[in-house]
């Protein structure tokens, strides 16, 4: 397994004297789904912004396939797609045009675009809405557009921020099945979420972030061993780890 995303002793945030992230260290390899878990304000979004190349680290670095953003912005950007927590759509583009634009932007061949868009529209039950504008979409539909756009491209890395909010059960299932099949084809997936039961079932490893630091990380068995909670669920571990801080 090749390490696709590597975050090394990342110190980052908005102000140099008040960093949000302290020495964050983790990696995501190909054929692996890693869950990024933490309370509100733990630093998940900041970590993701650093990975996307929207923020520059104060020290440490983030690489995708060995490249940092500043090395080669275009190649870096083409090596991942991102599903944001709040859908960002173009109000002046129809659903189909969102897919076409994304395919164009990432250099997907036209034939592949046509095949994939047909499949995606069917899978997410959005065929009827293909020519609709976003103003007619519900929150869940908007989220589906973002998911479909991300899956239009096949980059080595997928960065997913809280994908389940607003999705209907069938949408969630399609999404998870899709993620698993991408993993089987060798993709690396970093998924930030609060839905721990789902994370426990689908993620191979976890990174528990608290106050900008990685508190524990590893497989569920690793986490159980590190916290001394044999047989505990991810939920229990999560509560245990974050409670210690309160004490």
């Amino acid at each position: 397994m090749e390490e696709v995303l590597k975050v090394q002793t990342l110190k980052g945030g908005y102000q140099r004297n008040k960093p949000v992230l302290h020495e964050v260290d983790f990696s995501v390899s190909s054929s692996e789904i890693v869950g990024l878990i933490g309370l509100n304000g733990a630093g998940k979004s900041t970590t993701i912004k650093h990975i996307l190349g929207f923020m520059e680290p104060f020290s440490g670095n983030v690489t995708i396939q060995g490249r940092t953003f500043l090395n080669d912005p275009e190649t870096y950007r083409s090596s991942y797609t991102f599903i944001p927590e709040t859908p960002m759509l173009y109000e002046e583009l129809t659903l189909k045009e969102h897919l076409e634009l994304t395919a164009m932007a990432y250099g997907v061949a036209e034939d592949d675009y046509k095949k994939r868009s047909k499949k995606l529209l069917k899978e997410y039950r959005m065929e009827k809405m293909a020519n609709w504008f976003p103003s007619h979409f519900s929150k869940g539909m908007r989220q589906k557009v973002m998911i479909m756009c991300a899956f239009m491209v096949s980059p080595p890395l997928y960065v997913v921020d809280e994908p389940f909010v607003g999705l209907d059960p069938i949408g969630i299932k399609s999404f998870l099945d899709h993620i698993v099949s991408l993993k089987e084809r060798g993709a690396a997936v970093l998924m930030s979420t609060h839905i721990l039961a789902t994370a426990e079932r689908y993620c191979d490893r976890f990174i528990l972030l608290h106050d900008g630091e990685v508190v524990v990380s590893g497989t569920l068995a690793d986490l159980q061993a590190q916290t001394g909670l044999q047989g505990a669920s991810l939920d229990d571990i999560y509560v245990h780890v974050t409670k210690e801080d309160v004490r």
């Binding site: 173009y90 002046e92 583009l93 045009e97 634009l101 164009m104 932007a105 990432y106 036209e110 675009y113």
Partner: peptide
């Protein structure tokens, strides 16, 4: 349909519809 035309695609639609 071409990667180099991505932003032509986007701006022409913005012009016409928005």
């Amino acid at each position: 349909y071409a990667q180099q035309r991505t932003f032509h695609y986007l701006y022409s639609r913005a012009f016409l519809r928005s």
